[in-house]
């Protein structure tokens, strides 16, 4: 099973996936950070039997809310992961991988509702607050797998 945290380091709460991956590594688990092109991301999980993705989301829910989505068999709701106008978004990348037959059989997406996507470093208190819960849940999923 591979664990990937996504985001942009310099867009406040958008970094939550990256920071969660760092926390996991500090606790002795393997987790990757990914800031690059989503099209290339598909390659990272090719061949894995399970996949956990962690990212910031913007759905209009209360900031800090933790969304847990099992996308092993069904697509990621578009309203949570708006696609980028410049390239493929995460939802498209998952579906593209599914169509190509390279999506791992079990895929979980943890989305943290963000408050602040503006330029800058540092998480909002609500997002910071949910970080330990996110890490704990990911660890428990990894152990169960």
């Amino acid at each position: 099973m591979i664990v990937i945290g996504l985001g942009n380091e310099f867009r406040h709460d958008d970094a939550v996936g990256l920071i969660a991956a760092r926390r996991l590594r500090e606790n002795g688990f393997t987790a990757e950070e990914y800031e690059g092109d989503v099209a290339t991301l598909i390659d990272r999980w090719r061949g894995a039997d399970g996949l956990i993705l962690m990212d910031a989301v913007s759905s209009g829910a209360v900031p800090g809310k933790l969304h847990r989505l099992d996308v092993s068999a069904s697509p990621l709701p578009r309203e949570l992961f708006k696609s980028s106008t410049h390239a493929l978004g995460l939802a498209e990348a998952i579906e593209l991988s599914r169509a190509l037959g390279t999506l791992p059989s079990r895929v979980l997406v943890f989305g943290v509702e963000a408050r602040d996507f503006t330029a800058g470093v540092g998480l909002s208190p609500e997002v910071e607050g949910v970080l330990p819960v996110l890490v704990e849940e990911v660890v428990s999923c990894m152990k169960r797998h």
């Binding site: 099209a39 290339t40 598909i42 390659d43 498209e92 593209l96 169509a99 190509l100 037959g101």
Partner: peptide
């Protein structure tokens, strides 16, 4: 995405070239 279902090799080639 819908094209990939019928033409997976083609789309994979595109991703490989982009990479």
């Amino acid at each position: 995405i819908r094209m990939a279902k019928d033409h997976p090799k083609l789309v994979q080639q595109g991703l490989d070239l982009k990479k």
